[in-house]
């Protein structure tokens, strides 16, 4: 039961042209322009000290955001999926909230709290603590925009697997950590990995929110995406694309890992379904 070959060909071609124009051509453009002036220029752009410090800050932001969001995701999904309490629906909606907020607003709320004229601005200035236009601000903004990634993968997964296995472990004498480590975690490991991959990609690639709070101080508060912007605005296109190619490479690795995890988890789901 399918369409005529002509219709099929037309649909496939339309899909390919659309994806080609919007995805593949820009993707190719990044790498073409990155190597426009040869390998030496490419490497020079990446090895530049400001680029290095941007890489370091990006890694730092991800290194803080991913573990914290993993801890949060595990805690939230355990509470939501294994227990009954009032306001559960509201809690789930609140967890998704950062997805609905514009990145610019996500950055701005921290400026309003911690900025010079913000609620805590004066107090922070008196104690010589800098959050906005400094590294802590970059990390806070990253935390906000990556907040839901792990939790929203784990909650439906844990809800679907129910709590019978955990109860069985309890009856057999297992303690809380034993249940979590030996029963719950192995059951959600693919979903957790999936959430981590997405969370990491967003943490390293966030632009809008970080742009608001960073202050664009070269060598200090610039992340990789911000560094790309500065280079681009200085009309140093080749260097901008060279740095962008690193992020693009990261995105491609993310996609590969993601489809690998999807295949793995589909297989283990099929096992569970037949089980």
């Amino acid at each position: 039961m399918t369409e005529s070959p002509l219709v099929r060909l037309f649909v496939i071609l339309a899909a390919l042209v659309f994806l080609g124009l919007f995805l593949i051509v820009p993707l190719v453009a990044v790498f073409t322009q990155a190597f426009e002036k040869g390998l030496a220029a490419y490497l020079a752009a990446i090895r530049e000290p400001d680029a290095w410090s941007a890489i370091r800050l990006t890694l730092l932001a991800a290194a803080v955001a991913v573990p914290l969001n993993v801890a949060f995701g595990l805690a939230a999904s355990w509470a939501v999926a294994k227990f009954e309490f009032r306001g559960k629906g509201l809690l789930s909606t609140l967890i998704d909230l950062p997805f609905a907020v514009s990145p610019v607003i996500a950055g701005m709320i921290f400026v309003i709290l911690f900025g010079r004229t913000g609620f805590l601005g004066e107090w922070l200035a008196r104690h010589d603590v800098r959050i906005i236009f400094a590294v802590p601000g970059v990390i806070l903004a990253t935390l906000f925009v990556t907040f839901p990634f792990v939790a929203r993968e784990l909650i439906p997964l844990m809800q679907a697997s129910g709590k019978e296995e955990e109860e069985a472990a309890r009856v057999l004498g297992a303690g809380g950590w034993q249940i979590f480590r030996r029963v719950t975690l192995p059951n959600v490991k693919w979903g957790l990995l999936y959430g981590i991959i997405l969370c990491n990609a967003r943490a390293m690639g966030e632009f809008g929110a970080v742009s608001v709070v960073s202050g664009h101080i070269r060598g200090r508060t610039n992340t990789l995406p911000l560094h790309v912007e500065i280079l681009y605005n200085e009309y140093n296109f080749q260097a901008a694309f060279a740095v962008a190619s690193l992020l693009t490479f990261l995105a491609l690795v993310t996609l590969i890992l993601k489809s690998w995890v999807e295949r793995k988890s589909r297989r283990s789901e099929a096992d569970a379904a037949s089980g």
Partner: peptide, 24 residues
Amino acid sequence: FVFQHYALFRHMTVFENVAFGLRV
């Protein structure tokens, strides 16, 4: 306790399932 849908640990072998109560 034997659960209605057995609640076997799906990622463990039969042996590990039975051994669980002793290992914990």
